[in-house]
């Protein structure tokens, strides 16, 4: 029983870590831009497709890398590409809604998500079909009765390191201080010689690149990737950010762990739980929002007129 419990705990942490990488982006973008970037899930989910293409490109150009090395390089390429995609989308679309009511940016990003999804479906070779995604690591470590996949350790370690790096960046670097300044008071930040559009570009790059890692872990965990996986992952990541408190990094982590916890519990305890997991996840979301509309760690939100 103890071994089983440990196994469940490990899976919980893996799932929570993956959700965290997505939720952080939602929270960061909302905190800095006051925009709910609804296509964040779809932007992130473009990463595995870029990575798959990059693996083939690496093979075609006879770069002396195989297996894990090639995959790692491909993931790094996808992170950079998706980071830049985020910057591009901000510049092309989201920038137009800076002064508009929040609802307009929301609708625009919902539409953007569909555009991204359908573009992947039509432009990627056989884009409608699920694609196998290579495992990042297949080895396991046996600790007595507990089987610990190396992949799980990688996911947890990378997520923890990403969170630490993000906190260090925001709190202890000049650019991080400027990101927070823009988040808190855009107008006064401009008087401090900070150009908000540059800060938004940096923020989009960070959020999207971190989301790319989350999406790659998600599909590597599942073993396949489909063009529409970004919908569910985005919805879960967004919900995690909301119940934790949009704009709060700690909240995004807490929300992700909560949702992953419900996800696990339902699959363990409810008969045929895997079919009902989304029902319970979103009931949790509704419940938290009824009890505390600003999220667990969020500050009260006042709708801007």
């Amino acid at each position: 029983m103890d071994a089983l419990l440990a196994q469940h705990l490990l899976n919980w942490l893996v799932l929570g870590s993956i959700y965290t990488l997505i939720a952080l982006g939602f929270s960061l973008l909302f905190g800095v831009l006051d925009v709910i970037h609804f296509s964040h899930g779809d932007v992130s989910m473009a990463a595995p497709f870029v990575a798959l293409a990059a693996i083939q490109a690496v093979a075609a150009w006879a770069v002396p890398l195989t297996g894990t090395g090639a995959l790692l390089l491909a993931i790094l390429i996808s992170m950079a590409a998706i980071g830049l995609l985020g910057v591009l989308l901000d510049w092309l679309v989201i920038r137009r809604f800076r002064a508009a009511p929040a609802m307009m940016a929301l609708v625009a990003t919902v539409a953007l998500g569909t555009v991204i999804r359908e573009l992947i479906r039509t432009l990627y070779p056989q884009g409608s079909n699920p694609k196998p995604f290579p495992a990042i690591a297949t080895d396991v470590i046996r600790l007595g009765d507990i089987v610990v996949p190396v992949f799980s350790l990688i996911v947890i370690a990378v997520s923890v390191l990403t969170v630490i790096a993000l906190f260090a960046l925001l709190n202890h670097t000049p650019v991080g201080v400027r990101i927070r300044a823009v988040a808190e008071d855009r107008a006064v930040a401009r008087l401090m010689a900070i150009r908000p559009n540059r800060i938004f570009a940096v923020t989009f790059f960070i959020a999207s690149a971190v989301g790319a890692v989350g999406a790659v872990f998600f599909v590597s965990h599942a073993g396949v990737v489909r063009f529409d996986y970004g919908v569910q992952l985005g919805l879960i990541g967004f919900s995690a950010a909301v119940i934790g408190g949009l704009g709060s990094m700690q909240g995004a982590i807490l929300g992700s762990l909560l949702i992953a916890g419900i996800d696990m519990l339902v699959q363990i305890a409810v008969p045929d739980g895997a079919s009902y997991r989304l029902v319970f996840i979103f009931l949790l979301v509704i419940g938290v929002l009824v009890l505390k509309p600003s999220g667990i760690l969020g500050k009260p939100v006042f709708e801007k007129v």
Binding site: V177, A189, M192, I194
Partner: peptide, 16 residues
Amino acid sequence: FPTLTVRENLRLAFDA
């Protein structure tokens, strides 16, 4: 900037 420290607030203005 309320969550920035006093030092960070002053540093931004100094750099600007």
